[in-house]
Computed example of a mutant assay.
Amino acid sequence: MNPTDTASLLMRLSERDVAILESLRAHRLLTTVHIRRLHFAIGHATIPAASGATLRVLVRLESHNLVTRLARRIGGVRAGSSGICWQLGATGERLLRTMHGQKQRRRYIEPSLAFTAHTLAVAELAVRLAELRDRQTIEVISIQTEPSCWRSFVGPHGSLEWLKPDLYAVTASGDYEDHWFLEADLATEHPPVVVRKAKIYQRYAATGAHQARHGLFPAVVWIVPDTARQETLQAALSADSAIQHELFRVVTVEEFDQLIASGGPDPPTARG
């Protein structure tokens, strides 16, 4: 796509159209409901009216191959349009790649069910952060999605390691900034896997790289579907004497908004 084609296409798109494409670029997959909550929350008298407007815009973008829907609906056919899951279409991918000056093409294919579920769970956290911002509960200073939020570091034995959070966010409430590494947990990983990842966080914290840049180390939060999973992960982390418990939190999805709004309330390492 050359600059002339890009300029011509952009002239036919609204700011909201481009914002929807950018959201899909950042999160890879979004449901119709996610897109409604992100981009159609204002200006409609009812949720059904906003939902209708959302779907009309998405169908228009789809007709130009800017977005495409997955064959599988989240929640099955009975979920209706709210269960449609969207990703960038080929034209949308080329447009944004040209706008951002990138050459490497990202291929969008029909993802697996497990990838879809986890990607949407991470997107849900980002949407909740945006809603807290829009309600003026917090200020969202930055959000980094995968792979931008990944960190490489040299481990204690001199080998290169990677820390791969699902999401990194910096929020502010009152006089404080709060830094977060967020992990969307769907209760599909065995607890020892979570403990091993907690130890990767500890090894990264031990390098001091993040603290040198930001003056603190983020709170690491696993967001789980229910209290049973919460208790399971808390027990697994507590049972390992090598775990630095002040770094980690395990909360349910229902508790997530309150955690972010309150800024913790601890640990002190996550506040600046």
Rank of each mutant, 00 (worst) to 15 (best):
268 P>M: 04
148 S>Q: 11
144 Q>E: 15
51 S>F: 00
240 D>P: 01
93 E>P: 01
101 G>F: 05
17 D>S: 12
161 E>V: 06
88 L>W: 03
6 T>I: 12
88 L>T: 03
77 V>H: 11
57 V>R: 14
155 G>K: 09
253 V>I: 11
11 M>K: 12
249 R>K: 12
86 W>K: 09
29 L>Y: 15
226 D>K: 05
154 V>S: 11
90 A>Y: 04
214 H>M: 10
28 R>Q: 15
55 L>F: 07
184 A>T: 05
266 D>C: 07
169 A>G: 11
107 R>E: 12
30 L>C: 14
16 R>D: 09
178 D>I: 08
219 A>I: 11
180 W>C: 11
104 Q>P: 00
159 S>E: 15
37 R>M: 08
19 A>L: 02
131 E>T: 06
122 V>I: 13
128 R>H: 06
234 Q>F: 00
24 L>R: 05
212 A>S: 13
56 R>Y: 08
188 T>H: 10
126 A>F: 05
255 E>Y: 02
23 S>W: 00
207 T>C: 11
20 I>D: 00
158 G>W: 10
220 V>Q: 08
215 G>C: 06
87 Q>A: 11
199 K>Y: 07
261 A>D: 05
255 E>W: 02
12 R>I: 05
182 L>V: 14
225 P>L: 08
53 A>Y: 04
62 E>A: 15
38 L>D: 02
170 V>P: 05
19 A>P: 01
214 H>R: 13
148 S>K: 10
149 C>E: 04
267 P>E: 06
265 P>Q: 08
81 S>W: 03
127 V>Y: 03
205 A>Y: 12
104 Q>C: 00
261 A>W: 01
188 T>G: 03
182 L>N: 09
123 A>N: 07
123 A>G: 15
205 A>F: 12
209 A>K: 08
71 A>C: 00
111 P>E: 10
80 G>F: 06
45 A>W: 03
223 I>L: 09
198 A>Q: 06
115 F>V: 12
14 S>R: 07
167 L>K: 10
84 I>N: 05
238 S>F: 06
113 L>Q: 12
31 T>V: 13
138 I>A: 04
238 S>A: 15
20 I>N: 01
255 E>F: 02
221 V>D: 04
112 S>M: 05
37 R>L: 15
116 T>P: 02
38 L>G: 00
13 L>D: 07
205 A>T: 07
82 S>C: 03
33 V>Y: 01
120 L>S: 08
233 L>Y: 02
121 A>M: 06
222 W>R: 06
71 A>N: 06
241 S>P: 03
